[in-house]
C-alpha cells in the first residue's frame, strides 16, 4: 500500500513513530494524524454506510469524515489532531469498545 499524500516541503522535521492498525509507521513532528497516516497509506478507514473507503474531506474540522480510534481512549479527528510520538491508532473500533460519539 502506498501513501496518498506527497510531501512537497518542510521535510527536514524530526521523525515520530506511531502505530496504525498494529503496524509501525513514521511521521514528522508537526504532522497532523491525517497527514502522517496518508503519507504511508491510501485511506484512513472504511465508510460506515457505503462500500468505499474514506481519507478525510475538508481538513478543517467541519465534515467529520476523518474520525479514528485510539487503542485506548476516545476517538479523535485526524485532520485536526497533531501526531505525537507513540500514538496507537486504529481505523475501526476494537471489538467490544463502545461508541464514544455523542
Amino acid at each position: 500500500m502506498t501513501g496518498r499524500v506527497l510531501r512537497l516541503a518542510e521535510t527536514g522535521r524530526a521523525a515520530l513513530r506511531f502505530r496504525f492498525d498494529g503496524e509501525e509507521l513514521t511521521g514528522l513532528a508537526g504532522d497532523t494524524v491525517l497527514t502522517a497516516i496518508l503519507a504511508a497509506r491510501s485511506t484512513l478507514r472504511a465508510a460506515e454506510f457505503g462500500p468505499e473507503r474514506r481519507a478525510g474531506f475538508c481538513l478543517m474540522g467541519a465534515c467529520q469524515d476523518c474520525w479514528l480510534w485510539q487503542e485506548d481512549g476516545p476517538r479523535l479527528r485526524a485532520c485536526s489532531t497533531p501526531l505525537r510520538e507513540g500514538m496507537r491508532l486504529r481505523s475501526a473500533a476494537a471489538a467490544g469498545w463502545p461508541g464514544e460519539e455523542a
Binding site: 496518498r4 499524500v5 512537497l8 491510501s42 474531506f57 481538513l59 478543517m60
Partner: peptide, 19 residues
Amino acid sequence: AGVYTLGAAQIALKAQGVA
C-alpha cells in the same frame, strides 16, 4: 477517498507542506 474540498487541498499545502 481521495476527493477533497479545494479548501482542504489548500490547508494541506499551507499547513502541512503536502499535496
